[in-house]
Design a binder for these strands. Structure first.
Lengths: 215, 215
DNA sequence: GTCTATACTACGATAGAC
DNA sequence: GTCTATCGTAGTATAGAC
């Protein structure tokens, strides 16, 4: 018996909705929320501009949903590490590795995140439920790394660093790095996302931060 | 967050041109190039929108000039440290302190810089002479820190870190930090730019990075 | 679910009076 | 040096045919 391709769940043909999110993710990550018009998104998907509004209520809501998708993915990859039963030093190494892997796997993520952190709260203060949820997911991620650092300090394996400053340093060293686009490519002399560059990034980060934070 | 005006208003009244640059710096740093319209800039200065075009040829040129102003200031504060006759370890500490001081003194700087680094080259590829000059100044700054790191590695006082990755970590730990706005304020529980937060940032950074990079 | 057509607003930029 | 008026374009979003 033949199955229609479009309805076969094994051949996951992307829905229009997903295609829109993918295209929007690329564009927003590169040029920011205000820098991208819905016309460009629609063109990238191969739809008319008006058709986007069948899938999303507004540009804001599309963006918030995008951000939520990125943050949930990050949380899902980082959460098991925080709750694992491991020594804090080992946990920290794995957490950094997992974060780097997650950011490297989907190159648009880091840029979207940096923009969100640098932009003054346009979206977290929105009444959009999607934006509220995204903010909560971000809080979860932050709570995780804070707890991890607190454990290490309490057990005396990390020196008494300032937890907020250390979180900032971590974000800068990972999220900023993978968000730095052409500038970062130029500095490294290769793509930030090449297998070698990702591997080197992990090694450098872990060496520096482990040495710098161990008691 | 107020920009320092001229020292003596009776003698040194700021020109419209300077007022425009100051207002634009605040706005662009907070919401990005595409996120700010010239109408808002003009309102902030107290002029009509058209009057801006008497002082600047286009929005692009206004932005490029802004960026150049920020970068030249940074370069001027960092250059003497790189060329000073000091041991590399001491130089690095002073360089970090000077960078933190420079970013903390003018809160809009870090955000403008992060945006520029994260944005895919809209301005460096321009034909605007102002943009070309800004790119050169950025290169000067980067050349300085690269040289400083290379010296330290050569003399065996720093371990053999990857220079590009180390530069990225430094940028992330300083520029990103001071660009993180409301998010950073919330994380620290106080303004990123308060005297205490700036002092703590320096201490944490120097302790971590010095430990992490020393041979 | 996608289309055309359209409403309304804002944008960057120019012309020309004062 | 600033103003008003205007141009042409593009922005988000809606209405309604198919």
């Amino acid at each position: 018996m033949e199955q229609a391709l479009a309805t076969n769940p094994l051949v996951d043909l992307p829905s229009s909705r997903e295609k829109i999110l993918d295209v929007a993710e690329q564009l927003f990550s590169r040029r920011g929320y205000a820098g991208v018009g819905l016309r460009e998104v629609a063109d990238g998907v191969g739809l008319g501009k008006s058709s986007l509004f069948h899938h999303f209520r507004s540009k804001d809501q599309l963006y918030a949903e995008l951000l939520g998708r990125v943050l949930r993915r990050l949380r899902n990859q980082l959460r098991p590490i925080v709750t694992a039963e491991l020594a804090p030093a080992e946990k920290l190494v794995r957490w950094i590795e997992a974060l780097v892997d997650a950011l490297a796997e989907q190159p648009a993520s880091a840029r979207l995140l940096v923009r969100e952190l640098v932009e003054d709260g346009q979206f977290q203060s929105e009444e959009l439920p999607e934006a509220v949820e995204a903010t909560q997911v971000l809080s979860e991620i932050l709570g995780g790394i804070r707890q991890l650092l607190a454990e290490g300090i309490e057990q005396g394996v990390f020196r008494q660093v300032s937890i907020p400053h250390t979180v900032q340093t971590l974000i800068g060293a990972t999220v900023y790095h993978f968000a730095s686009g052409e500038f970062g490519d130029g500095l490294l002399g290769r793509s930030l996302f090449s297998a070698e560059a990702v591997k080197t990034r992990k090694q450098e980060l872990i060496a520096t931060l482990q040495q710098g934070w161990m008691a």
